[in-house]
Amino acid sequence: MKKFNIAITGLGGQGIITAGTILKNAVLDSVMEDVSGSERRGGAQREGYVEAFVKYIFYDSIAELQNPRKNMHSPMIASGDADVLISLEPLETLRAASYVNKNSVIIFNTNPHIPISVRMGKNKYPELDDILESLYGITDNVFYYDFNKLSLENFGSIISCNVISLGVLFAKTNIPVSKNVIENILLKGSKAKDNLRAFNIGLNL
């Protein structure tokens, strides 16, 4: 059995769950492929953290697929067990860093969104350099971009950050899914043209 775990984190409204669903749709064509993974929205409406897990499972044999000791998968990702962490907010990258290990890839958005406690002066928002230092302390494979700026410049809004980050996922990791499959999913969805363009922007970063 091969597995590939992706954790996506960020804030409400950033399209975290949509990104997860796009990825999950990639395994519908083969019975030998499976996917699990839950979403969690913290603290209700806006500003709260949101995370989505995508866990790909590729069975080696029909026997394995039918083996009850092998064919059941937790919807959560254990500490250190994510192959990739995508985060659309720097602070949330730090919070989710427990999902990754020294071989994992981290892709994150450098555009900060200040939490209320920092607004109130009770906490300090960590400097980007500190965040990077912490992340490089775990893995060398860290890629970061200002997705907000890229989305804004290309689409006049920040709603494409999530799909751009998916492009980066395919450019910088060995995700065992063909990028054509994702392009086909985007093609069938709403705003297909924008999404395909956003995906390609990510691919070329």
Binding site: G42, G43, Q45, R95, P115, V118, K122, S134
Partner: peptide
């Protein structure tokens, strides 16, 4: 190092 983030209106 990670300040909590809570939801708001």
């Amino acid at each position: 190092k990670t300040p909590q983030r809570m939801g708001t209106f």
